[in-house]
């Protein structure tokens, strides 16, 4: 039995045991994050994904035949985890689905002081109600402004896409991916998805912008995008940089234990120093007397 298989069986046993921790966070099995590739050249703006998402998670189901949603640029909200927007570009109308990007190193989960925002080993970033204290620091930190807060509830929740975490655990694809009639959404590991995305860009250079959004942005995201036009024309921020956002607080958090040990020692030293000076002063006074 090689190591991988051993770990798998060990994990399976621990799942089967009554006391075994079944949560994904406790498994040490090496696995790759899942992600989704969005090919905006394939999307026709049917908004099946919006409906499927809302049905799956008991959210507000938009009336896609009547609500003329493409007249304005919409944002995800506490009632809808995903929306499709339409952009008029040089290459015609481009439809772009928006949802949580499921960053490789998410700012929201680094920001969360209760680990309520949590990057699972499968890739989805999920929110856990029983831990959250509603401080909304995840909203401040998220570079994509994705977590949404229920301002009109006495017991509010943070609402955001969780890449259908429960379905992924069951071995199914996210609801939106399943609902897409055009194969504009593709579910898989990032390694596979990047291969496919690169292949598409190489084989149809006239059709695609030579860039995969999410390959490097904010340290890499779980959701990847292909576009026919530059990404800033279809509502993406291109100024976010390639540094994972938790890195911005890294030096500060490194400094904390150093300060907690160093500063008391320094202060105590200063205190003793001033005391000694007084002593010398006193003895000199005595000598003068």
């Amino acid at each position: 039995m090689d190591r991988r298989n051993f770990l798998k069986t060990a994990a399976a046993i621990s799942v089967a045991l009554p006391n075994g921790k079944t949560k994904a966070e406790n498994q040490n099995v090496e696995k790759e994050f899942y992600g989704v590739l969005v090919d905006t050249t394939r999307c026709i703006g049917c908004r099946s994904c919006e409906v499927a998402c809302s049905l799956e998670h008991n959210l507000f189901v938009p009336d896609i035949t009547k609500d003329n949603a493409f007249n304005s640029i919409r944002d995800t909200s506490e009632k809808q985890w995903t929306v499709v927007n339409c952009y008029d570009t040089a290459k015609g109308k481009v439809y772009v689905k928006k949802q949580c990007m499921h960053c490789w190193q998410p700012a929201c989960s680094a920001a969360c002081l209760t680990n309520a925002m949590f990057k699972t080993t499968d890739g989805p970033v999920i929110w856990r109600e029983n831990k959250c204290m509603g401080c909304r620091y995840c909203m401040v930190s998220c570079p994509f402004d994705i977590p949404k807060f229920e301002y009109h509830e006495w017991n509010p929740k943070i609402q955001k896409c969780k890449m259908c975490y429960e379905r992924i655990i069951d071995g199914k694809k996210p609801a939106c991916v399943d609902a897409c009639p055009m194969d504009a959404l593709m579910f898989g590991s990032k390694r596979e998805l990047l291969e496919i995305a690169r292949y598409r860009v190489y084989s149809h250079p006239e059709k695609y912008e030579p860039k995969i959004y999410g390959e490097y942005e904010v340290g890499g995201t779980g959701w990847l995008y292909l576009s026919p036009v530059p990404f800033d024309q279809i509502g993406f921020r291109t100024d976010l940089g390639n540094t994972p956002y938790p890195e911005y607080t890294r030096e500060f958090l490194y400094a904390v234990p150093l300060v907690l040990f160093g500063v008391p020692a320094l202060l105590l030293g200063l205190n003793m120093l001033t005391e000694r000076k007084n002593e010398i002063g006193k003895t000199e006074e005595l000598n003068h007397e």
Binding site: S109, A110, A111, C112, L113, T114, N115, A116, N130, K131, C132, M133, G134, C135, R136, Y137, F149, E150, N155, P156, P246, T249, F252, L253
Partner: peptide, 23 residues
């Protein structure tokens, strides 16, 4: 300002220490 102030004990009693957070 907290949405769920009753959960304020979570980062203190230790059932969910978010060490990675500045907050």
């Amino acid at each position: 300002d907290l949405g769920k102030p009753w959960n304020i004990i979570n980062p203190i009693i230790g059932n969910s220490f978010g060490y990675n957070s500045v907050l």
